[in-house]
Simulated scan of single mutants.
Amino acid sequence: MTPTPVPAAALGLYACGRLRAPAPRDVPATPDADQARRAAEEELAKPVYHQAAGLWERIWQWLVEHLDPRAAVPGAPAWLSVLIVVVLALALLTALVVLFARVTWARRVTRTGTALFEDDRDAAALTRAADAAAGQGDWTTAVVERFRAIVRMLDERGVIEDYPGMTAHEAALLAARPLGELAAQMDEAARLFDAVRYGRVVSAPAQDAWMREFADRVARAPLAPPVPTGQVPA
């Protein structure tokens, strides 16, 4: 069978098309680990990734420039500016110390409502403990134990009734009516007890001597009828 002849024009177009067809591009290979690391390092080295660090550096530079004590007071000599900064810093430190002391004091004051008694010793035992502490120069313990002895003595004489959790202030209120003219001194003794017990006042021999004398006066005083049990005067 004789093949069909191809026109010369078609052969020409086919040849031209093969000559003008673009050469195939090389397909890029997948980068290995080293190439990927270098690419990441080059990317991170660009300035855009260091803008945050530059911002913090500018802030730090501003603080250094504006907090320089030599230039803290505009128009003042460097030595005067430094002196003013030092004085203000010392004043601030003093204010903080005073504030801390007041907070500590307030915390101690809130503790003055704790129980007056820690055991069930009678008045005689508490008095002996106070005398022993005074003999050793422990005036804090002497004052505390002697006031407890006074309250326990009033309980033993039947004019007040102590109870678990009683405070020095409550004891003074209960004893106000039975003690009569000694009520004001009883209140003062209760305040001294709280101040010495909780460290607001450093006890001294004179305070123990005053508490001892007051205890003697209470022991000799004629006492009024007791307040009904469980009632605290307003």
Rank of each mutant, 00 (worst) to 15 (best):
M1C: 05
T2A: 15
P3H: 04
P5G: 05
V6T: 12
P7G: 12
P7W: 10
L13V: 11
A15F: 09
L19P: 00
V27S: 08
V27D: 09
V27Y: 08
T30C: 03
T30H: 11
A33E: 14
R38K: 10
R38H: 14
A39P: 01
E41I: 09
L44C: 13
V48W: 11
V48T: 13
Q51Y: 11
G54I: 00
L55G: 13
Q61T: 12
W62C: 08
H66P: 03
H66R: 12
D68R: 12
P69M: 03
A72D: 04
P74C: 01
P74A: 06
A76I: 07
A78N: 05
A78I: 05
S81E: 10
S81Y: 06
L88Y: 04
A91S: 06
L93E: 10
V98D: 09
V98K: 14
L99C: 12
A101Q: 15
T104K: 14
W105N: 13
V109F: 03
V109M: 13
V109C: 01
G113D: 08
T114G: 15
A115S: 15
F117K: 00
R121Y: 10
D131T: 14
A133I: 03
G135P: 00
Q136W: 08
W139K: 07
T140K: 13
T141W: 07
T141S: 15
T141L: 13
V144K: 04
F147D: 02
I150N: 02
I150F: 02
V151W: 01
R152F: 05
D155E: 13
E161L: 05
E161R: 11
D162I: 10
P164Y: 06
P164N: 07
G165L: 03
G165N: 02
A168V: 08
L173R: 14
L173P: 04
R177L: 14
G180H: 04
A184S: 11
A184R: 15
Q185Y: 10
A189Y: 02
A190Q: 05
R191F: 02
F193G: 03
G199C: 02
V201L: 14
A204M: 09
D208I: 07
W210Q: 06
M211P: 04
M211Y: 04
A215Y: 13
D216R: 15
D216F: 06
A221N: 06
A221W: 03
L223D: 00
V227E: 00
P233I: 02
A234T: 08
